[in-house]
Write a protein that binds this DNA or RNA. Structure first.
Lengths: 356, 356
DNA sequence: TTGTACGCGTTATCAA
DNA sequence: TTGATAACGCGTACAA
């Protein structure tokens, strides 16, 4: 590591030196409101005046202060996207759809990452006020929001991948989800249909009700419906939020395999865990799917590029993200809320085999 | 897809209904400044008054308006992290270090994603003004910032993974980088040292000077120093920014292999490309490293969890991220700027073989 | 078409 | 320990 330290400390101009709308007006020899009109393209300004003001703005590198603007303005165009764990590749995929879509409408988007322990609705309430938001999308999180919290968030809100508690008035928010329990059940039934009976389940859950716990319920339901006894030894639940999903999956698989040599398949609640689990299998010198079948959940790109490509319960991330932005714009325009449940698609790529 | 539309449109309370500091003062029967003192823990307030005000705040769900606060406040504690492509796993790794570190100091961090075509310095200048920032970290981007732009950005600025043009006064910014050309050279020399002569290079570059182009220069330098002729046919440069890194790497490898059956090794400028390239090799039924050796760059977690695990030029992402935040705090406290160059570590995991 | 003056919600100064 | 009041930078009636 090479380090070069500059001896002469940088001197910053400081806010007092920053040029504001009043300075521009003075320099250009016009009134403040004229400058404002030029900036916002509102009202009517003569071409000569407009030119003069524009030139002054450029020459002095004037940048309007949004804090002051937000203070005055009634209806802003600020939208916030609050994400629980921005490093999740599945969420990343959605962000890449949401962002250009919102930018296209001329709305500035701010992404706010919140950590696992934070209450995203509290943050949304604060941000709504601070940035004078006109709408918010919340990605990730859990099902524990109360009706009272939504009432305090007095702007259109779309929940993406989660919903609220059943007792919350559905008019207060929109939700774009999949039926996690149902799809978890389907993924498990896929393995059962291939003849597997000793099926492991890998997940990590902190909150009481999350998509993960719902998928776990689906796993249990599938077993029950096919008269397969539920065995707690086949379930690995990591409460360690410090480690990555890959590591969690890796360790969970090692643990499951050491305890259950008769296990023939594993369902991981997310692809990143499935990949970690797959690495554990492969690094033990075992084969996928000959020794262990693996099915993941989400349908992230990496599940396809892994070798072998992993079977997964694909969530239509792009459609869901698009739907979320459209619904938000609808709500901003005064339309009512929507609750849309998408269906997953089981992608079969060869990481699960049929038992004889 | 199931859709439930709510007939009754939500009616939002609207900003006029929002309670502000004046309301709290009135309800609590105290002066505005007393409420302000309670909120900010400044000045002295009697316990009884403090209790009364706190209760009023909670009962009325008062949330201070940060726009107004930023307008008044001299020194804010807002820090922005501007990221060019937030979905890059390598950047994600850094974000996970930067965020808690900044939060620990009690500074609110806002992450702003900018797309490939945007000028991150322009955005920084705007944000600095809007959010009354006290500092900014810029991740990714290119080497094309001019001195003038830095002067307009009148707050401490740390560039992470890139630096500025050599003619820019180094006192105006800090930079945390690696020597991309040198490390690109080292990665190539690693392959040469194993006996490879026909070495492909995969990259994608849009801007004139980026870390990618520097690594490419390093690749060329290594060849030259070992008297290996540079062959343009061995270079795949994707200009398509719409497709993912995995896809780019996959297609690049297919293309390189079809054109160069005598190619024995490939150096990809980033691990995500290396993974795509690896998948191409494996899906053609070839072996890594028996048929093709692959070395990547960055050292993202996925390179390890891939099978086979990929050799890579590891960047000390966590250290660099930590260094960036520390340097920023130093600058905020009035210290001078720093320019730190880290060294990469070549991780050998078996995806490259020695030629006989 | 242009300029003046007021208020947005907050913090800081100062006097009480 | 408190409260009145002047900024902060901007948008917008309203007057000219």
């Amino acid at each position: 590591m090479t380090q070069v330290e500059i001896t002469q400390p940088a001197s910053y101009t400081g806010r007092s030196m920053l040029v504001n709308i009043k300075d521009i007006a003075r320099i250009a020899g016009v009134g403040i409101s004229t400058v404002s009109r030029v900036i916002n393209n509102s009202g009517s300004v003569s071409d000569a005046t407009r030119k003069k003001v524009t030139e002054t703005i450029n020459a002095n590198h004037y940048v309007p202060n949004n804090s002051a603007r937000n203070l005055k303005i009634t209806q802003s165009k600020n939208i916030a996207l609050i994400v629980k764990d921005i490093s999740n590749p599945f969420f990343n995929k959605m962000i890449q759809v949401i962002e250009p879509r919102i930018a296209l409408q001329g709305y500035p988007l701010m992404i706010q990452n919140v950590d696992a322990s934070a209450d995203e609705l509290d943050i949304a309430i604060q941000e709504a006020r601070d940035r004078n938001l006109c709408g918010v999308i919340i990605m990730g999180g859990c099902y524990s929001y109360s009706e009272e919290r939504f009432r305090h968030l007095s702007i259109p809100c779309v929940l993406l991948t989660v919903s609220a508690r059943p007792d919350v008035d559905p008019a207060l928010y929109s939700s774009i989800t999949i039926d996690d329990e149902q799809e978890g059940c389907r993924a498990t039934e896929y393995l059962i249909g291939l003849g597997h009976r000793r099926i492991g389940f890998i997940y990590s859950a902190l909150e009481p009700v999350t998509p993960n716990t719902l998928r776990f319920l689906g796993y249990q339901r599938a077993l029950k419906e096919h008269d397969i006894p539920f065995d707690p030894n086949l379930v690995a639940n990591s409460m360690n939020i410090r480690e990555s999903g890959y590591t969690t999956g890796f360790r969970a698989m090692k643990q499951l395999y050491s305890k259950n040599r008769d296990m023939t398949a594993v369902f991981a609640f997310a692809d990143i865990l499935a990949i970690g689990a797959a690495k554990a299998v492969l690094s033990m010198g075992l084969s996928i799917p000959d020794d262990i079948s693996i099915v993941g959940f989400d349908g992230i790109e990496m599940a396809e590029y892994y070798h072998p490509s992993l079977d997964t319960m694909y969530q239509p991330a792009a459609e869901m993200a698009l739907s979320a932005t459209n619904t938000l714009f609808d709500m901003i325009q005064g339309n009512s809320s929507k609750h849309i449940v998408y269906e997953s698609v089981l992608l079969k790529r060869g990481s699960c085999r049929k038992l004889l």
